[in-house]
Simulated assay, not measured.
Amino acid sequence: MQRQIVESTSIKSIGYDQEEEVLEVEFQSGGVYQYIGVPRDVYGGLLAARSKGRYFGEFVRLSYPYEKIR
């Protein structure tokens, strides 16, 4: 999955597979996680958020199943 670099102190890049509804997040620490069943509007909200780390914590982190891929 291709990710785009974002401005954030905690998140380095974000990618999204619209057909599978999979959000991929690469953290500044180096970990890469995939979150399953994330609607497109949540992905859009994350990209648009002024504080991506805060948005991620409130709307993604504990709301969707995930797996660490790296």
Rank of each mutant, 00 (worst) to 15 (best):
Q2R: 10
Q2S: 11
G37I: 05
R61D: 10
Y64A: 06
M1K: 06
M1T: 11
R54M: 10
F56L: 11
Q18T: 11
Y66T: 04
E20F: 07
I11E: 04
S63Y: 12
Q34R: 02
E20G: 08
G37W: 05
Y55G: 05
R50K: 09
L23H: 03
S13T: 05
I36P: 00
I69D: 00
L23Q: 03
M1R: 13
K52I: 05
I14E: 07
L62N: 15
G30N: 02
E58K: 14
G44S: 14
V42R: 08
Y64T: 12
E19Y: 10
S51W: 05
Y35C: 01
Y33H: 00
A49F: 12
G44C: 15
S10I: 11
E24H: 02
Q4S: 14
Y64N: 08
E20P: 00
D41E: 09
I14Q: 09
R61H: 12
G53K: 02
Y43N: 12
P39G: 02
K12D: 09
P39K: 11
G15N: 15
Y16S: 03
P65N: 07
G57T: 12
Q28A: 02
S51F: 06
G30P: 01
Q34S: 04
A48P: 00
V42M: 12
A49C: 05
S8M: 06
L62V: 11
S8T: 07
Q34P: 02
A49D: 05
I36S: 01
Q34A: 08
V60G: 13
A49Y: 07
G37M: 13
V22F: 00
K52Y: 07
P65I: 05
R50Q: 06
S10Y: 14
T9G: 12
Q28Y: 01
R70F: 09
E67K: 04
R61Y: 14
V38H: 04
S13I: 04
L23C: 00
F27M: 04
E7H: 13
G44L: 15
E24K: 03
G15I: 10
Q2H: 07
E19M: 13
S63L: 15
K12S: 09
V32I: 03
D17G: 07
G30K: 04
E7K: 14
E7G: 08
Y33W: 01
V22G: 00
I36G: 01
A49P: 02
S51N: 10
S51Q: 09
S29G: 10
G37Y: 03
G31I: 00
Q28V: 06
Q18V: 14
Y55R: 10
Y16A: 14
Q4H: 13
A49V: 08
Y35D: 10
Q34G: 08
M1P: 07
L47I: 14
R40E: 13
G31N: 07
A49L: 09
I11W: 09
S10H: 11
K68E: 08
F59M: 15
T9F: 12
E26D: 01
S13M: 05
Y16V: 14
V25R: 01
L62T: 15
I5F: 12
A48I: 03
Y35Q: 04
K12F: 06
I36A: 11
L47C: 15
E58W: 11
V32S: 07
I11Y: 15
R61P: 14
P65V: 01
R3T: 06
K52A: 08
I14N: 07
E24A: 01
E67T: 03
V60W: 03
